[in-house]
Write a protein that binds this DNA or RNA. Structure first.
Length: 477
RNA sequence: GGCGACAUAGCCAAGUGGUAAGGCAGAGGACUGCAAAUCCUUUAUCCCCAGUUCGAGUCUGGGUGUCGCCUCCA
C-alpha cells in the first residue's frame, strides 16, 4: 500500500504522488502573531507536523514552509492597544509561538517566512497578476478581479452567484464587484506601509501566502494545509492569485488538506467567540505530550471536543506508553540473557506484522487514531513478553525499543528522546536514596522506606519495586 | 437559501459489505511489606425508519439530532 490523502479539491482520497520523485513541497498556513495561539489553532500545527514527519519517515525530502502573518488589521490594532510597534508585537509573539510549539513537540519548519520580509515578492506577485489581466488598480488599492477567473469557487465548491450573495463590501472600498478581494491596501494614516508601484500601502491577507509559497516552493506545490475555515475565502483566493500570477495553467496545489475544528462545549473554539483556551494555558494545566496525544486520538478531519476528561484520558494513555518504554529499558539492564524458550523469530514476525498495520493506518490519510491503536497493540505485546519471560535476549530489547523509537519519531507521543538526558547530580542523589531505601526494606524498616518513597514522590519521582530491584521514573509533566 | 461534516459501550475513538481495533474509567482475579506498574477475565440491540444484498456500523432513500463554512477565524 502507499500513502493516500483526502484531497479537498476532489473530495476524494487520492494516492499521493509528489511532483518531483522523492521530494515533497508542503505549505501550511501559520499563525497571525498578534496574540498567543489557542488549542484550536494548535490542532493543525500538530496534525500536519505528524504528516510532515511521516513523509520524512517514508524517505521524502520534505520542504515544509509555515508562514508568520505579521501585518494585518489585528496586528495593527493589537500593537496600538499595547502601545508598541507592529514589528515589536510580531517579534514578541513569534517568540511565544515558538515556545509553545516547541513544548508541543512541533518541529520547526524548513522555512518560517514573515510577510513583512517579503514585500518585494508580494509586489512582484501582484504585478504578475495585473499583467495577466486578473487584477485592477483602484485609488491606490489593488483588487483581484474574481469574475475574470473562471475556476473561482472550485475549491469550496460554491458557484459564484451563491458566493456573491454573501459577499461583503467594506465602506470605502472601491471594488468593481463585491466578490473581488484586496491584494494591496492603500496606506491609511498611522498604519505601517511600504512603497509600491500603486503608492504606499500594505499587502492584503491572502497574497503573502501566494508570494511566499512561490518563493520557497515554486508555482506548483504538492501539499497545502490549514483549518477547514481557511478553505473559503483564504485558500480559494490564494489558489486564484497564485494561478493567475503564474499564468501557466498548472494547479497551484495538488493536494489541499484541511483539518476539522477543535470544539469546546460542542462549539467551534474561536477567538471571536471568546470560548478559547490558549495553548499556553493548556500546557500549564496538562502535560504537553498529552495534548499532542489528544490531538492525534481522532482523525484530523473529524471534529474533536476539548474537555478536561478527554485530556486526562490522554495523559493516562501517554503514561501507559511511557511505562512500557521505561520498563523495557530497566529490564534491558537487569534481565538480558540467553533464553532458549523465547522464540525470537516469532517475536520479530509479530513486530513486522504490527509494523505493516501501523503503516497501513498512516497510509490511509494519516489515520493517527488507528496508528495509536497499533502502538498500544505493540505495547501489549512487549508487556506480555516481559511478563512471561524472566530473561530475554538483547535482540528482544533492541528491536522493541527501536520500534517504539520509530513510531515515536513520527507521532511524538512517548517521549523517547527525553529518557537519555538524566546524568546529573540529581540522578546520583536519587540512586543513593534508592540504595538507602533498599537497605531499609531489607531490615523491614518500612517506615523509612515509605518516607523515602514519599519524599521522592513529592519531587515527581516514582519508585517501583521489582524482583530485579527498584526502578524509578519521572512523573508525566 | 447554497455547500459540507458528524451521530459506534460510562467516556474518547478506529472501522476496507461478512456477526464490532485500541485507549480511559469500572468490576473480579494474579503479583506485591505497602504502593505502582503489568498480566488474566469482564462491559455495544453501531441515532431512527425503509430499501438493495445470501449478508450493512459500512451502500441507497427518507427522517431526527448536533456542528461548521458561505464574514475576521486553524
Amino acid at each position: 500500500m502507499s500513502l493516500e490523502l483526502f484531497n479537498d479539491l476532489t473530495r476524494k482520497k487520492e494516492k499521493f504522488v509528489p511532483l518531483k520523485p522523492g521530494e515533497v513541497s508542503f505549505y501550511s498556513c501559520g499563525p497571525t502573531v498578534y496574540d498567543y495561539f489557542h488549542v484550536g489553532n494548535a490542532r493543525p500545527f500538530i496534525v500536519f507536523d505528524v504528516l510532515r514527519r511521516y513523509l520524512e519517515h517514508l524517505g521524502y525530502k520534505v520542504t515544509f514552509v509555515q508562514n508568520f502573518t505579521d501585518i494585518d488589521d489585528k496586528m495593527i490594532h493589537r500593537a496600538h492597544k499595547e502601545k508598541i510597534t507592529v514589528p515589536e508585537l510580531a517579534e514578541r509573539f513569534i517568540a511565544e509561538y515558538n515556545k509553545d510549539a516547541d513544548a508541543l513537540g512541533i518541529r520547526r519548519p524548513t522555512f518560517a517566512p514573515r510577510a513583512t520580509e517579503h514585500i518585494p515578492e508580494i509586489i512582484h506577485t501582484i504585478e504578475r497578476i495585473i499583467a495577466n489581466g486578473h487584477a485592477y488598480v483602484s485609488n491606490g488599492d489593488v483588487y483581484f478581479d474574481v469574475r475574470s477567473w473562471e475556476n473561482y469557487g472550485s475549491l469550496c465548491k460554491q458557484n459564484i452567484e451563491d458566493l456573491e450573495a454573501g459577499a461583503r463590501v467594506e465602506p470605502g472600498e472601491k471594488k468593481r464587484d463585491p466578490l473581488d478581494f484586496v491584494l494591496w491596501k492603500a496606506e491609511k494614516p498611522g498604519e505601517p506601509s511600504w512603497e509600491s508601484p500603486w503608492g504606499k500601502g500594505r499587502p492584503g491577507w491572502h497574497i503573502e501566502c501566494s508570494a511566499m509559497s512561490s518563493k520557497y516552493l515554486g508555482d506548483n506545490i504538492d501539499i497545502h494545509s490549514g483549518g477547514v475555515d481557511l478553505m473559503f475565502p483564504h485558500h480559494e483566493n490564494e489558489a486564484a492569485q497564485s494561478e493567475a500570477a503564474s499564468g501557466s495553467g498548472k494547479p497551484f496545489v495538488n493536494f489541499w488538506l484541511h483539518n476539522g475544528f477543535l470544539l469546546i462545549d460542542n462549539e467551534k473554539m474561536a477567538k471571536s467567540l471568546g470560548n478559547f483556551v490558549t495553548a499556553r494555558a493548556a500546557i500549564e494545566k496538562f502535560p504537553p505530550i498529552a495534548i499532542r496525544f489528544f490531538m492525534l486520538s481522532a482523525h484530523y478531519r473529524s471534529p474533536l471536543n476539548f474537555t478536561t476528561e478527554a485530556l486526562e484520558q490522554s495523559a493516562s494513555g501517554v503514561s501507559r506508553l511511557r511505562n512500557c518504554r521505561s520498563d523495557l529499558e530497566f529490564a534491558f539492564k537487569t534481565r538480558t540473557g540467553e533464553n532458549a524458550n523465547f522464540d525470537m523469530n516469532a517475536y520479530k514476525n509479530n513486530l513486522a506484522e504490527l509494523d505493516t498495520k501501523f503503516h497501513a493506518a498512516m497510509d490511509d490519510d494519516f489515520n493517527t487514531a488507528a496508528a495509536l491503536g497499533v502502538l498500544f497493540e505493540l505495547v501489549h505485546l512487549i508487556n506480555t513478553s516481559l511478563k512471561e519471560n524472566a530473561i530475554l535476549p538483547a535482540e528482544f530489547f533492541e528491536s522493541s525499543l527501536n520500534a517504539l523509537r520509530v513510531y515515536d519519531d513520527i507521532l511524538g507521543v512517548i517521549g523517547c528522546e527525553d529518557s537519555e538526558t538524566e546524568t546529573d547530580a540529581e540522578t546520583l542523589e536519587i540512586e543513593n536514596l534508592i540504595q538507602e531505601r533498599t537497605q531499609a526494606r531489607k531490615n523491614k524498616n518500612f517506615a523509612r522506606s515509605d518516607e523515602i518513597r514519599n519524599e521522592l514522590k513529592s519531587r515527581g519521582i516514582i519508585l517501583e519495586d521489582t524482583p530485579q530491584g527498584t526502578k524509578w521514573k519521572r512523573e508525566l509533566q
